[in-house]
Design a protein around this nucleic acid. Sequence first.
DNA 1: CATGAATGAGTGTTCATTCAT
DNA 2: AATGAATGAACACTCATTCAT
Lengths: 204, 204, 204, 204
Amino acid sequence: MPVISAERMQGRIDAIIEAATSVFGAKGYEAASIAEIARRAEVSDGLIYRYFSNKRDLLYRVLEAFYERVVAALEKEAANGTTFDSRLLAIVRRHLGNFVADRELCRLFLSEVRVASDYKGSTIQNLNRRYVSVLTALIEAGIAAGEVKPDASPKLVRNVIFGAIEHIAWPYVNGDGKLDVEETAIAVTNLICGGICLPSQNKA
Amino acid sequence: MPVISAERMQGRIDAIIEAATSVFGAKGYEAASIAEIARRAEVSDGLIYRYFSNKRDLLYRVLEAFYERVVAALEKEAANGTTFDSRLLAIVRRHLGNFVADRELCRLFLSEVRVASDYKGSTIQNLNRRYVSVLTALIEAGIAAGEVKPDASPKLVRNVIFGAIEHIAWPYVNGDGKLDVEETAIAVTNLICGGICLPSQNKA
Amino acid sequence: MPVISAERMQGRIDAIIEAATSVFGAKGYEAASIAEIARRAEVSDGLIYRYFSNKRDLLYRVLEAFYERVVAALEKEAANGTTFDSRLLAIVRRHLGNFVADRELCRLFLSEVRVASDYKGSTIQNLNRRYVSVLTALIEAGIAAGEVKPDASPKLVRNVIFGAIEHIAWPYVNGDGKLDVEETAIAVTNLICGGICLPSQNKA
Amino acid sequence: MPVISAERMQGRIDAIIEAATSVFGAKGYEAASIAEIARRAEVSDGLIYRYFSNKRDLLYRVLEAFYERVVAALEKEAANGTTFDSRLLAIVRRHLGNFVADRELCRLFLSEVRVASDYKGSTIQNLNRRYVSVLTALIEAGIAAGEVKPDASPKLVRNVIFGAIEHIAWPYVNGDGKLDVEETAIAVTNLICGGICLPSQNKA
DNA sequence: CATGAATGAGTGTTCATTCAT
DNA sequence: AATGAATGAACACTCATTCAT
């Protein structure tokens, strides 16, 4: 029988995650200190270790909370739309939009987590798989519906699209340059759909 | 009149860079210690600071040496080929090949440098610009030659291609999975050239 | 609600200051190491940094504790006495006595602090000002009472007296020679009061 | 038979001392580096060790050169004058003047040497003894001539005077405040000669 | 349950000095 | 004689984590 109520406990956890989100976001993982997070959450240092096993775990939980939100939104997004083109555009637009809406958290993910050795096998990686599988599914559906070339590899296409978008968004995420979501989304979608080569060239 | 010959001096520098390459590669930047690098280079700790201004500088110099090599190779590669397709394939193939040939250094670059705050304005960034400009130039040439759609944005295309390749290569670079250079190069090149959508779809 | 009692906390601080006093006193500031101070205080290195912001701060706090004691004693001393002569003698005697009673701390102050660039504006300097102002006030009172020449500059006189005493005490403080407090106090006081020149000389 | 001429050797030594004087003067002993001194003297690091046994020795030689100059000047000064008063004033004036003329070297001496453990028994201390003995001799002469009270202790008087002057000059030497040599010299001399107490007081 | 005092491992960097060339 | 490359010891400070209170 817990001495504090489940609600209060959850409130504590949420407060810590919220504080950690802003401190990690503002300073990065290394430069952030548990003491500062505790202070901001109005909690003692030690309490953090009751709910999180260590600093790294706290980072992951911050990003999990974020990723869950983002995965849900993408999955919902994917339910809409009729044609392949429009649905692809919607996914690309939303993915790009995430970088703008949550720049700090995206930077945290790209620079501190995906690149780290403990990423493999983590909950975050599983969330990432769910996230990207939305696009894989769309492509498979596109093939089935005859909208996408039957010999396209869904996984390859998905990697090309996400890789492209992240590469394009990174300078912005890293605090350098602007990012026009709509324009970029359309350009990327068109490129992926139609390719860059002139048909005449291929015939020649 | 230097007390040691220029050759010996260069030998020292090379030994340090080589040692640093392997230690940084094996442990990552943070976990690597100057003392271990010095030991491996059979040099005193202090000597490293005669040739490199600090640990960070040493990391950059390791990657600069690598990047210079890679840039030169890509520029040479780009000089060959006749058609746009064949030249694009060559560039893609080589870029992918770099990840296989120098996995550790690529990981170092992707995980410790490109993501870091001191990347902007660094010599490495300039080398990176030279590197990617090879592709930009090819696309511009392709447009001029009527091989590439005139409304293609060379910069966007370049970002999509490099982003895609890095995204695809990352799991391998990070020590997970395989990477079939030839197969991947062809698949990516085809996708970029021809897109994924069936022409009939666009007409509908 | 602190985890340890205020007494125990103060005990820790006192132990650190005491340990620092003896280590700084024995080896001087530079040669003293935080590790040794911590060991002697039976405390971890890190704890010192909870109570003191850095090594320099620790030195200052050691001397502040000392100086506060000494200032209070001098101010109390200054309250006694009737004639100017007797009160001046008491101050001179006490100042000289401090060098004997706390040789190590005096040496620390003279050789590591007063001479340092961070002395200006420090708490120690303020304590020093309070300390010396006791003498300035006495001289002003002496002038007001007609015991001291009306054209004597209190500040100059004060500087001459403290400068003289410190100069005389230094060899002793630095571990060389003896210091007879009473004899010296009387000699200095007489010299300051009566000067060294024979009246007949001045008339001639 | 030396491979270089004695003149050239002396030239080297002088150049090193001159360079050391300015570097030590500008940065203090600790912050000065042998490398910088060597660079400024247009000499190799190693050569310094041919003429000076170590960094500390170099500091002492810098100050010896300075002190020899200053001692000679004071001894010459002391030869002039007729009355005790005028000769005392001249010595006090010159001593104060040294702080103004060679502020950096005086600071070096007061803050880095006189306070150090290796001062005792050094050549510098011997020069200092010669320097102050000029004043002792004057006082003894004053006593012999009936100008100074016969019971005045020459050594005590000398210490009071030098202590006072150094105490007064220190803030200026340390880069804080001004120093009016003439005014201060007169005030100090008068105080020492005549004392501060009113004769009437002593009779009462 | 909560606190926050206490721990202590871990390391980049400088520079006086030496000695092979 | 002169050089300057090479050495290597020495240390304050931080902060994630623990556990006595």
